[in-house]
Amino acid sequence: MKILVCISDVPDTTTKVKFKDDNTAFETAGVQWVINPWDELSLTRAVEMKEKTPGLIDNITVVTVGPKESEATIRKALAIGADNAIRVDALPKDAFYVASQIAEAVKNENFDIILTGIDSADYNGSAVGGMLAEMLDLTSVSSVSSLNAENSKVTVTREIEGGTETIEAATPFLAIVQKGIAIEPKIPAMRGIMMARTKPLKVVEPADSETLTHIEKFEMPQAKGACKKFDAEGVDELVNLLHNEAKMI
C-alpha cells in the first residue's frame, strides 16, 4: 500500500500573532514554522502502521504546497519516517488552490490512502480534505480518530454527535483526521534525522489554478476584560450589569 500524507507548514502554536500591510497580511518575521499538528499525527499513524505490520505499507509520501522555506518542515516529516516528499512550489493561497495543486501533483501516483488534517492551525479552513477527495474522486470520511488498514481495505472510527461510528471502506480512500489518530506525535530519532538528508524531495511547478477567495482583512479577537466578582448578596447588581453593560440578558 502507498500512503500520502498532506502536510502544511504552520506557525508554531505559541506564536504571538501580528498583522501587517494594514491588517491584510500575517506578519511572518520571527515566526517559527512547524508541521500542522493534525498532519504530524497523521504521519505518526502512517509510520506506526508501516512499522507494526511489515509488508503492509510500502511507501509513505508527504506532500506540501509551499515555498522553499517550507522544506525544513518537509525534512522533519522525512525524519519522522516518510520515505519521500513532494513540494509544490507555490504559496498556499486558499483551500481550493491548495487542493487543486495537490490533486494535480499526485493524480497519477495511485495512492491507496490519503490523509489530511481536519484543519490547519493557521487559517482553520477545514476545506482541503473534502475538496481533494472530490477532485481525485475518492471515497472520504471526515473527523477520523482512528485508522487501520489491511490489504485493500481500511477501517476508521469517526466522531459523531454523542459517540463514535466505525466505518469500513475500500481503498483508494481519503481520511480527514483529527484528535486520537495517534497519541503523541512521533519524535524524529537521530537516525531519522540523518537519513532525511538523503531521502528524495521532488519539487514540482504549480499547475494553473484559480484562487477563489481573497483576504480582505484580519482582526484580533477583543482582549478579555477584567473579571468581576460578586458576593451571593450581589445578585441584583449582577443582573443589572449583565443587562445594561454586557447586554447579554
Binding site: A72, K76, I187, P188, I193, A196
Partner: peptide, 14 residues
C-alpha cells in the same frame, strides 16, 4: 543549520 535545529527539537520534545 536546519539539522542542528532539528536535533535540538528532538531533545526538547523528548
Amino acid at each position: 543549520n536546519e539539522e542542528q535545529l532539528m536535533i535540538a527539537d528532538t531533545c526538547r520534545s523528548f
